[in-house]
Amino acid sequence: MDSYKIADILEEKHPEPSIPLNTPVQLKFRELLIPFMGALTPIYVPGVAQRLLGDESVDYFRTTRHKDLGMPLDDYGKQKAPGAFERAEPFALAITALLNETPSGPFFLGDSVSYTDIIWAAILLFFKRLGNDHYEEVLRRTGDAEAHVRLLDALSPWTGRDD
């Protein structure tokens, strides 16, 4: 929840190697990411309970989300998920346009890794963890799946662990 604050502190305490923060690209990206994730909330919140959490955590998650949503999590997903990917698509397309603004490299800043790359890769990998169906649909909605796969491939030295 506080990843931006944490990143600022890490950059301050460990400036080498530097990872660009608060760039114009990152600020534009944040404006797109919030509504993108908001549109997909009915997909990923129930998905966490259905596909990721173990037995020891799922009851707590369902109970707290029921309180937050005012309805059972499964009902929320059934009622709100239809059309979620369509609602997210304009933001996914805009994220792709932002990624492709600098054609010199696979990253948002061209050939330099930035915090924006890390955030977006984390989102893509989260949807991949939820299931290939969700991941493939997110990629499809970007309008240029290959650009996002290139980004993930370029970040593989940092994302290679799967545990």
Rank of each mutant, 00 (worst) to 15 (best):
Y60W: 15
I119E: 03
F61W: 14
F36Y: 14
G83E: 10
E12D: 04
G38W: 03
A92N: 12
G110S: 00
G131R: 09
K67C: 11
I119L: 10
I123N: 02
K13E: 06
S18G: 06
D59P: 11
I9M: 08
L93P: 02
R141G: 11
I123F: 15
A88R: 03
F85H: 00
G143Q: 07
L73K: 10
L93G: 08
I118H: 05
V149H: 02
N22E: 13
P24F: 09
I9Y: 05
V25A: 05
D68Y: 15
I43Y: 08
P157K: 04
M71L: 12
T116N: 08
A49G: 04
P90H: 10
G54Q: 05
P72M: 05
K128R: 05
W158I: 06
T116C: 05
P42Y: 09
M37Y: 05
K28I: 10
D55H: 08
T116P: 09
A147E: 11
Y4K: 02
R141Q: 11
S104K: 05
E16D: 15
K13I: 01
T41L: 13
P42D: 01
L53H: 00
G83Y: 08
D144K: 02
P42M: 01
S112Q: 05
Q79C: 13
K80W: 14
D74T: 11
F108T: 03
S114T: 09
P157H: 07
A97V: 12
D144L: 11
L98D: 08
T96V: 13
V113K: 10
G143V: 10
L69C: 00
N132M: 14
D55S: 07
N100F: 14
K28Q: 12
R161F: 15
I119M: 05
R141C: 14
E56G: 03
L99S: 05
V25H: 01
E137N: 10
A145S: 07
D8Q: 05
P35W: 07
S57F: 15
I118M: 10
L53C: 00
L155E: 06
P42I: 00
R30S: 01
V48M: 13
D163L: 15
D74A: 09
F127S: 01
I123T: 12
L40D: 08
P20W: 02
L52W: 13
F85E: 09
S112A: 10
E11C: 06
Y115M: 03
I34V: 14
E89I: 11
R141L: 15
E146F: 13
L109H: 04
K80A: 12
D59M: 13
T23A: 07
L98T: 07
P20T: 06
A147N: 00
P103H: 01
E136T: 12
P24D: 09
I95M: 13
L155I: 12
A39P: 07
T64C: 14
S114A: 11
D8K: 01
A147T: 08
K13Q: 08
E31P: 08
L33G: 05
R51W: 14
R51C: 13
K128W: 12
S3Y: 08
G160W: 15
L124I: 08
F29H: 00
D2Y: 07
M1Y: 11
V48I: 15
N22I: 04
F127W: 03
A92E: 06
L109D: 03
A39E: 01
D117M: 03
I118A: 02
P106A: 01
I6A: 02
Y76C: 04
